[in-house]
């Protein structure tokens, strides 16, 4: 069972969301990926206005509309717009089919002004994915680090939070979140550097590590390899490839009456 935490509608041609997701599903089939979580539309916008993130969420909503048996959606928000983000959460999660939240690089997540969004998402049982990096050349102004996420996680100890990209530099990222038991490592969206998954399992335990691909910019191939090629027990691989994500999504899927 492979569940992919991290998919975009990019990397393929297609004027419409329907065309794009149909092409991506062809590759998912080839690689045995059963369920896929999509977030953000196109083109990528680092600091979207409420109007822009709504448009992006509409694209994802349209894309998943014909793939209810396989595709899930996370709502893309911008923490600079707290009220509008909460309204968007209600629109797409409370009153719509989406089941999680994507936060990217508009503002750093250690800023407590994000807290109303986190609380509202938690009320709705929406799973939160926060992009993080530790870039050697320096992060974007609003780009969070795993350390930022660890600070935020302390303020919301009962809310599961996903550390997107595991900080890119996984040796730093894993250390930064190791003492935050409600933070999970999303290992997708970086080079298939050998050792990332072994260190993640060693540092966090296999039940806090999640596979994701970051398609279509990345490939299923390189990202699945991080798990398939890792020197870890088979039972750990099964958790990382799908078991953990399924467990984290079960509360909201139950709430929505979705059986998996």
């Amino acid at each position: 069972m492979i569940w992919d935490l991290h998919c975009h509608l990019s990397g393929v041609d297609g004027k419409t969301a329907d065309e794009r997701i149909a092409q991506l599903m062809v590759y998912a089939d080839r690689m045995g990926v059963e369920r896929l979580v999509f977030f953000m539309g196109w083109p990528f916008l680092t600091d979207p206005t409420p109007e822009q993130f709504r448009k992006q969420n509409d694209q994802v909503l349209q894309a998943i509309s014909h793939w209810h048996d396989r595709a899930f959606g996370f709502v893309y928000l911008n923490a600079k717009y707290v009220d509008e983000s909460i309204a968007e959460l209600d629109r797409y999660v409370k009153n719509g089919p989406m089941i999680g939240v994507k936060l990217w690089v508009a503002s750093r997540c250690n800023d407590p002004s994000i807290d109303p969004i986190i609380k509202r998402a938690a009320d709705l049982k929406a799973l939160i994915y926060q992009h993080t990096w530790y870039k050697t050349g320096g992060n974007l102004i609003g780009e969070s680090t795993p350390g930022d996420l660890a600070l935020m996680a302390k303020r919301h100890p009962d809310v599961p939070l996903i550390c997107g990209h595991t900080g890119g530099d996984f040796e730093l990222g894993l250390r930064a979140i190791q003492d935050s038991p409600n933070v999970y490592a999303g290992i997708g969206g970086s080079d298939p550097t050998a050792g990332i998954t072994e260190m993640a399992v060693r540092t966090l335990g296999a039940d806090r590590v999640l596979y994701g691909s970051d398609i279509g910019g990345r490939s299923f191939s390189s990202q699945l390899a991080k798990v398939q090629g890792a020197d870890i027990p088979e039972v750990s691989k099964r958790l990382i490839l799908g078991g953990n994500l399924k467990r984290l999504l079960t509360p909201i899927l139950k709430e929505k009456g979705i059986k998996v």
Partner: peptide, 10 residues
């Protein structure tokens, strides 16, 4: 440096 499976999967 990379997992061998990455290129094999491609």
């Amino acid at each position: 440096f990379f997992y061998l499976e990455s290129s094999l999967n491609k």
